[in-house]
Nucleic acid binder design. Structure first.
Lengths: 108, 108
DNA sequence: TTTAGCACTTACAAAAAAGTATGTACTATA
DNA sequence: TATAGTACATACTTTTTTGTAAGTGCTAAA
């Protein structure tokens, strides 16, 4: 944390801080049920570039929301999965999904 | 929507689209219980500038998540409140709040 | 009469996020 | 031998987001 910057005491604020951005929630949503490989995620998250994907994966790993498992194989095999902390986000995803679906239905 | 751009069929994706950014969730969080005036929001959302505040309020209004009520008084009085659609986000906020609090507790 | 407060608006600049294009090391398959 | 696929890395540019600073029109209080 930058000196002079106060750490947020508000849980919502601190949650938003690690989840905001265009891709993170979508990546986590892809991983909600099962671990996936880099290329699977690339195909699963429509529109994301490789650069953004690793960048976001790295940040999520640093925040201990996902775990990176390298199988040290050739050709390379790496698997990403939710950590315990990441799995605890399920209620958030569920609520978001429900809300999103309702809005889509309303507008049709 | 821009021509050629596919509307997301994923509820999570469409929800993220209208809620992402540094301030929106925080603004909505301020409004979760009671309507508030512009100046109250400015004081409540720590760190936000006036420019960002109206900008985000306008977008949220356009997305019909909040409602703007102008009392046509002098000095000006305007009140912002959640719409039905906005109130339905409560489960999202609750889940986010819980998760954020858990993470804060863990790290202490 | 100056100040403060209300709810903004605007021009401009800085910072952050995201995208493009290319390259790496390795292997298997055509 | 060329191509494709794995999982990235890096330089560079563009786009988007956010911030800074100032100003508007109005009123009430000091």
């Amino acid at each position: 944390m930058v000196r002079g910057e106060k750490d947020s005491d508000c849980p919502v604020e601190s949650a938003v801080k690690v989840l905001s951005g265009k891709w993170k929630i979508l990546i986590l949503w892809e991983l909600r049920e099962t671990p996936k490989r880099f290329a699977e995620l690339r195909r699963g998250v429509t529109g994301i570039t490789e650069k953004m994907l690793i960048q976001q994966l790295k940040e999520l790993e640093k925040d201990r929301i996902i775990h990176r498992k390298d199988f040290h194989e050739m050709p390379p095999k790496v698997e990403y999965s939710l950590t315990e902390r990441g799995r605890k986000l399920k209620p958030v995803f569920d609520a978001l999904w429900k809300w999103g679906r309702e809005q889509i239905q309303e507008s049709s």
